[in-house]
Write a protein that binds this DNA or RNA. Structure first.
Lengths: 208, 208, 208, 208
DNA sequence: TATGAATGAGGATTCATTCAT
DNA sequence: TATGAATGAATCCTCATTCAT
């Protein structure tokens, strides 16, 4: 019995591992080729399993992609909390977020998140199937919102600017798309980039 | 002779009109559905012509899409110049640009431009066929760059922030993607949005 | 009245000339590209007229092709008679025919005739529409048949070989397909080729 | 393990069988309709499988056709060797070849081979993709060449006729195209036909 | 459970033919 | 009469998904 149960758990663990591997590989291919140029075949091959096996984990290509994003956003949400945990002021928290998005292992995922979320194709998919994603996204926007409100309350941020616009602006600056060239081609160190972006977001480009 | 010539012109004009109509419709469908979910058939049907007729104007789906972007960017470039023509200070020019991007008839196109240019799928197509687009894009970035340099030279803008980062930040804020919800769902008037975005970009969100 | 009639004739002549030109050009393209790779568009363009104009002369692509072959076979039939006119013995006549097929301006057409008649595609077309062709072909086979019978009657040819098989064998050797390489690549002069082919046909390859 | 291996072999065998069936059916349709009138759809339907399945075996229509010819020529080459194995003199060998080409199950294939190889359309396809075919063809011509040279060396054949011309003539007489009518319409038994053709090729039609 | 062969809907593209001008 | 824009049937090919083994 106990053995059976352990085997159960072992199998479950293996299953989980494989699922994670599929998600990881699929994410890579997706980032490289985009949704429509990515075939289930290629994902399976790269993982080293058969096409059918992917379907044992995810009922459809759409669901697979949604799972990728769900996981990424979840991870992001967690990293998010970790990143702001050690910070006190609202602006420090936001800077820490930028840092988290542009630096280290997560930069690739941020890239994926924003790059694909922006595409019309993805939007359609999420519009139909991605209810769970929207809620995570909501949570994210809410967290940023809270920080901004905190900053306003403490007199740090300009309370006359609507929080919603602040959130959107911040999110815009958090998408690595537009800054990619600076990092890859012009070899700008990510932390320098983060420094300047936060400076712009907080103090603007105008000399006072 | 004169008649022939006029007919020539007339036909040419009709051809041009149809081509414009195809571009317009295709742009709409593209914006709704994205590249891969858009079929030539649907474009043709919506225009009210046969599939084959589309091919009389554009040799392939890719070419059609590239034509759309080329036209949009061209139009944008022109509107751009018009928009900044009557402005004197660098910050006024940038605000005018934001205004141009978010207000009036062009807002849809800005949407398309940024929404599709960001998709991985489009990137691949443009990487192969869209040399002309890259040059227009270069021109655009260059123009913004010039304005920012002007502002720096006149002491208006903070010269210690690299222009490249300023450009990317500005372009980020110029993509309507992230602000779309505010306009459509929360009914925020575009000019109010522009007011706040420019305020953030110029002065930041921190209280001095 | 007379003028009208002359004009009529003139127009008719022009029409005939154009029709001939279309046939000539179409024949060239056909020889180069084969039936299915040849488009009506290309024929028209090469002639220097519009696609629709071709249809004023030939109701369909199939009909155009049939017209080409009808003309070619007609020409061949005439050249045939001219070629054998000055010959007396049956074998001289056949040699003259080989010479006619492989030498001079007609070699191209012989090529076309045999090359296309052999293709399955053409067969289908001729099976459906080419009744006229079959009759010309009949006439041709009949003429060769007559010469062979003459030769048999005069004791020149071996009467124990069925004439039908002789005809088919002769026609086989008359198709430039298999000998093309010898002429183009190995630069064998056509008349030398004719010399040897007739020698094989008449005396065989065995040493007596 | 053994089971797995056997299953492997079984599957492989089934796959091979299906592939052979596709080739066989495709060959039939091709012979009936020619390359361009043959659709992948029809081939699939006649085999009793779906369109896509054909593509599991052959990456494109062109490749399918090339595979047909490759197999046919291979088979021909083998039958060729078998046919001449039991013969001693050069002329007996050549007669055996004619017999092989016109008699029995291979007659259809000979038909296809010569009928399609002669069409301009096929030529174009093979020019692009059919390198392997050319080499097989070379081998065939070479084998015939060798037999003819043998015959010349043994004093059997007339050494004053160039071997190349002999080869081409022989190949011409080996194409069933021109003799088809005799067999199908006039009900001439193939072996009688072979008898006369070889007689013509060896001794000619002239009475000595 | 894992496989991968089979499916077939879907879409881009071509081109013979028609017909309004 | 000549044109060439418009048509749409036809075809190749892809790939997400299913299912027998």
């Amino acid at each position: 019995m106990a053995t059976t149960h352990l085997q159960q758990t072992l199998k479950e663990k293996q299953r989980q591992q494989r699922e994670d591997l599929i998600l990881k590989v699929a994410e890579e291919v997706l980032l490289e080729k985009g949704y429509y140029e990515t075939s289930m075949e290629e994902i399976a091959t790269r993982v080293g399993i058969a096409k059918g096996t992917v379907y044992l984990h995810f009922p459809s290509k759409e669901d697979l992609v949604i799972a990728i994003f769900a996981r990424d956003m979840q991870t992001f949400l967690q990293g998010f909390d970790t990143a702001i945990a050690s910070q006190t002021s609202a602006s420090e928290k936001l800077t820490a977020l930028l840092s988290f998005a542009y630096t280290g292992i997560f930069s690739n995922r941020t890239q994926l998140l924003s790059s694909i979320l922006n595409s019309v194709d993805m939007r359609r998919i999420f519009a139909e199937k991605g209810e769970c994603l929207r809620s995570i996204w909501q949570a994210l926007a809410e967290k940023i919102s809270v920080i901004l409100e905190e900053g306003k309350a403490s007199g740090e941020f300009d309370a006359s600017i609507p929080t919603g616009i602040m959130v959107s602006s911040f999110v815009s600056l958090l998408s690595p798309q537009k800054f990619e060239r600076l990092i890859t081609v012009e070899q700008l160190p990510p932390d320098v980039l983060v420094y300047y972006i936060s400076r712009i977001f907080f103090k603007g480009i105008v000399i006072k």
